[in-house]
């Protein structure tokens, strides 16, 4: 009965950074708490009233003490804050070479999608010792994706993408929880992260692979009529999407635009998502406002499909957009079989 864990295992590269910071805060917490308790008990006993007419020393304070117990905690807090920011930077900035995995939360399950295009429920397979970046959203209410052994967490928010990244250091299975209350079966919205070593991961990938996300996205790009306007031609009716990902684009001057003229926006997953769901939200300079593009809501493109369309747009290199009439260019999808 007594061999229960009191501290979670460390299974990612950031886990020890988080734990070291925890131990730092804990150490002064213990010192201050012990100091306060010892002082309380000492005063209660040593300075107790000894005759009934006795009063305490009639003093009103001490400037030096008052300044020191304002200044010293301020310094401790600033050190803690700064250390916290450094660890946070480690937690939120993914390495450039991270593998993408997409995660959709819904009442009450986690759906995971891999670059290879296949999907799983409540399970996340990741390689050992390789950075993995999760892009997370929700189909319904708020959820939150937490892997305690990795010390990472991000909310799944309907209508936008959040990200988290980690690099697993311990092979095997780790627990995965939903930590944002999401309704009746909240406590059953749990799962596991399976960490494979490199060889196992490749084996698992090839066994499971069907079609690349980007390849699927390319089909949708045609099916949803995106290609009609976003054609790779000079007379295109909409911005060309090639090599657009992670570029900054200027935002239009149109009076009706809610965004201040002269600003620019980074084309990341969230901007691509917003521009598909609400095309008029942020219009690229030089294009008509409101947008002539229809709003692709959930009835037209599901969250799962949206990830694939975005994966396709991210993969587009110069000259790869198909002309309006289907040609034979192939997107370059990670881990996907080339050609069909």
């Amino acid at each position: 009965m007594w061999d229960f864990p009191i501290f979670p295992k460390q299974a990612s590269t950031v886990a020890s950074s988080v734990d070291n910071l925890t131990l730092f805060i804990l150490s002064y917490n213990v010192l201050i708490t012990a100091g306060v308790f010892v002082c309380l008990i000492f005063c209660a006993v040593y300075f107790r009233q000894r005759h009934k007419d006795e009063v305490g020393e009639q003093t009103h304070g001490g400037l030096l003490l008052e300044i020191s117990w304002a200044v010293i905690p301020t310094i401790i807090c600033l050190v803690t804050f700064w250390w916290g920011v450094k660890v946070y930077a480690e937690l939120v900035v993914p390495p450039a070479d991270a593998t993408d995995v997409y995660v959709v939360g819904r009442q009450w399950m986690w759906k995971t999608q891999y670059p290879t295009g296949h999907k799983e429920i409540n399970t996340l397979h990741v390689p050992l010792g390789k950075p993995v970046k999760l892009t997370i959203t929700s189909e319904d209410v708020l959820h939150s994706f937490w892997i305690p052994a990795f010390r990472v967490k991000a909310d799944a928010v309907p209508g936008r993408y959040t990200t988290l990244w980690f690099e697993a250091t311990v092979p095997g299975e780790h627990r995965l929880f939903c930590t944002e209350y999401c309704g009746t079966e909240h406590s059953r919205m749990i799962g596991k992260v399976v960490v494979h070593d490199e060889a196992d991961y490749q084996k698992w990938l090839t066994e499971e692979a069907e079609f690349g996300d980007a390849l699927q996205g390319r089909k949708l790009f045609t099916k949803l009529q995106c290609v009609t306007c976003h054609a790779g031609e000079s007379q295109a009716k909409a911005p060309i999407l090639e090599e657009l990902y992670m570029k900054r684009v200027p935002i239009g001057f149109d009076k009706g635009s809610p965004t201040a003229p002269g600003t620019s926006v980074l084309v990341d997953e969230n901007y691509l998502r917003e521009s598909i769901r609400y095309p008029s939200a942020k219009i690229v300079a030089g294009w008509q406002h409101p947008s002539i593009m229809p709003a692709y809501d959930e009835s037209l493109v599901s969250e799962d499909d949206l990830f694939q369309v975005i994966a396709y747009i991210k993969s587009l290199r110069r000259g790869q957009t198909p002309p309006r009439i289907e040609a034979t260019t192939q997107p370059r999808a990670l881990g996907a079989p080339q050609g069909k």
Binding site: K86, S144, E180
Partner: peptide
């Protein structure tokens, strides 16, 4: 004092909603 674990960014990410 335990609030400091939660105001510190690096530790709150792990501890939030627990």
């Amino acid at each position: 004092l335990t609030g400091l674990f939660l105001s510190t960014l690096g530790t709150d990410i792990h501890l939030h909603d627990t």
